[in-house]
Write a protein that binds this DNA or RNA. Structure first.
Lengths: 182, 182
DNA sequence: TCCGCAAACGGACCGCCAGTCCGCTATGGT
DNA sequence: ACCATAGCGGACTGGCGGTCCGTTTGCGGA
């Protein structure tokens, strides 16, 4: 990769990150805005990221890789229920801390948040945990259901809930789902 | 309401219904398409429905009122778990039968499916059921979680699951959530 | 029956945005 | 130093949601 290409790529990511951080509605950020803020031509931006959703995915990956690394290394907790709870809690925290970006990701491009690489990842992880707790029966659906319970726009909808309320809800949910036999 | 206004309103709803029925991707249907298919000017269309999301909501209301009437009159089932299961099952069936329209509704306009009148309705209903089964503690969050488990794009993502798999998953989920004490 | 006028109409028009295209420029291997 | 070429940038395109306004139409009163 040529030096200027790498430099521009970083500039774009940094600028976009700043813009998404500051915004309240992801759709208000146009590709022109990003290009301008990065001091880069629009063509450059599209060459690096393909299309809007590509840019958003790249941003998301950059932001989320720390989280992903931490949580994948090994979920803390004594029981499956504890581990699932831990995972969901961290996802909620992450989505609260990255409101606009995660909202953008869910709406982005092709439509479905389910085609994301990272969704696949969390789903696989959770399915294993669920399966360990109550057997493989419907484990994959239950994992989908648990992840759906922390979707960005739900987090957004409940944005003024205090931590305790989330904590109580997530605890109740994970206990119920993971403590019941098939 | 003037006679021509009423006539046009119906023509638009009918045409839009036809288009959404036939399409595979809601965004491929433009307001111009709808206007043309209805044999009506664009201005007329916007006067009646305000904006795109208004049209979609109107369509959804028309399609869903039968469902809503049936399920609200009184959920069948002996236990809260049975009633919740019944509700979720019917929602999934409805969303499977109205793929494009419900997808359109979730993406539509202002962004959030949670601001919809009908979401409010189902959520209230389910919260009552949950509350009856396991007390008011976290009942509203659990109701959100249950509804999230049947969101349109999840239904879409799992579109090739056979009925039995859905049935097993929904049963497992509702039993777990409603059978556990707080 | 006719009149007048407000309600309703329709489609040209606007601003915006994702994505493309192509003439120009900078980079790095030789 | 040279030059092939990867990379650049911004004018341009097509299509969209939404608006505007001159024209038509339904309808209550005279």
């Amino acid at each position: 990769m040529r030096a200027d290409a790498a430099r521009n790529r970083e500039a774009v990511l940094a600028a976009a990150d700043r813009l998404f951080e500051a915004a309240t509605d992801p759709d208000r950020i146009s590709m022109d805005d990003v290009a301008a803020a990065a001091g880069v031509g629009k063509g450059t931006l599209f060459r690096h990221f393909g299309d809007r959703s590509g840019l958003i995915r790249a941003l998301y990956t950059a932001r989320g890789e720390q989280l992903q690394a931490t949580l994948t290394a090994g979920l803390p907790g004594d029981s499956p229920a504890d581990r699932a709870l831990h995972l969901l809690r961290e996802l909620v925290r992450f989505k609260q801390a990255n409101r606009v970006l995660t909202l953008a990701l869910e709406n982005a491009g092709d439509g479905s948040p389910y085609r994301t690489e990272s969704y696949e990842h969390w789903h696989t992880t959770l399915t294993a945990v669920v399966s360990q707790a109550r057997g493989p029966e419907s484990a994959d659906y239950l994992a989908h259901a648990l992840l759906a319970a922390v979707r960005s726009d739900l987090v957004e909808h409940l944005r003024d809930w205090p931590d305790e309320r989330w904590e109580a809800g997530l605890t109740a949910l994970t206990r119920s789902v993971l403590a019941t036999g098939p």
